[in-house]
Simulated assay, not measured.
Amino acid sequence: MRKYGVGFTVAGSFMTIAFLIIVNLLTSPEHIWFIYPSIGLLLWPVGLYCMKNKLHKLFSILCSAIIIIFLVMENYLETPEYPWALYAVFLILWWPILMILEKRAGNFTISLIGSAIFIIYYLMLNIFLEPGYPWVIFPAFAVLWWPLTIYHVSRKSYFKYAIHASLFVSIFFITVNAVSTKHTIWAIYPIFAVLWWPLSMYYFVYRRRLEE
């Protein structure tokens, strides 16, 4: 039944894709639209086969490859003057990478190296493709939570985590404020709200444990 099920989805997918190609070429050859539904039709047999055989790593690799090929083709066909696919491709690659790493993704050294690679990659895109504004601070802020969280969770230092995380968020808002709207000081408002995190941790968790 497994073989017949996968075989049916493969045959059905390719027959449907062939039908869509014919309809596309006969009705509107000036616009290649069959690519969009074809991506979903290709993921159908791939997902069914991998899930039935519990090949989760292979599923992430194949799906990532299909999506990346689609984005690169779309970029080349629609807007070849600007390589916007580079922004998405690197993010998609992290899906199979994390699946392959498995539990090692929770290692502090791996998270630090991964975060550094992530930041350097988008920093290069920022410098060479969009040098007008340092937008790299936003993905850098997001990815640095990975090593910060792993470091404190592995040591169960949750109160220190609240302190360091609050400082990290405060630095982020101050940086965005200085870069984006340096004539208007607005960072103080979210910083004030963030400071309640370590304060509440101290009075309701950390201090009670010391008293006990």
Rank of each mutant, 00 (worst) to 15 (best):
L91D: 12
L91N: 12
I92F: 02
I92T: 04
I92W: 03
L93Y: 06
L93Q: 02
L93W: 05
W94L: 07
W94Y: 10
W95H: 10
I97M: 02
I97L: 12
I97F: 11
I97D: 02
I97R: 03
I100S: 05
I100L: 10
L101F: 00
L101A: 00
L101Q: 05
E102A: 13
E102M: 08
E102V: 00
K103H: 02
K103E: 07
R104M: 06
R104G: 01
G106D: 02
G106F: 08
G106Q: 07
G106P: 05
N107R: 02
F108M: 05
F108C: 11
T109F: 04
I110Y: 03
S111C: 01
S111Q: 07
G114N: 09
G114D: 00
G114M: 03
S115I: 04
S115A: 13
S115V: 06
S115M: 04
A116I: 04
I117G: 02
I117D: 07
I117W: 00
F118A: 03
I119S: 02
I120N: 09
Y121S: 05
Y122M: 09
Y122V: 02
L123E: 12
L123G: 12
L123T: 14
L123Y: 13
M124K: 08
N126H: 11
F128I: 01
F128Q: 08
F128T: 08
L129F: 09
E130N: 15
P131V: 01
G132L: 05
G132Q: 08
G132V: 14
Y133S: 09
Y133H: 13
Y133W: 14
P134H: 12
P134N: 03
W135D: 13
V136R: 07
V136S: 09
I137V: 14
I137E: 03
F138A: 13
F138G: 08
F138S: 12
P139Y: 06
P139V: 12
P139A: 03
A140L: 13
F141E: 11
A142R: 08
A142L: 15
A142Q: 14
V143C: 01
V143R: 02
W145D: 08
W146P: 00
W146A: 03
W146H: 04
P147N: 00
L148V: 09
T149N: 13
I150A: 00
I150T: 00
I150Y: 06
I150L: 15
Y151D: 04
H152L: 14
R155N: 11
R155P: 03
K156P: 10
S157F: 09
S157I: 11
S157K: 15
Y158M: 15
F159A: 06
F159K: 14
K160L: 15
Y161C: 12
A162E: 15
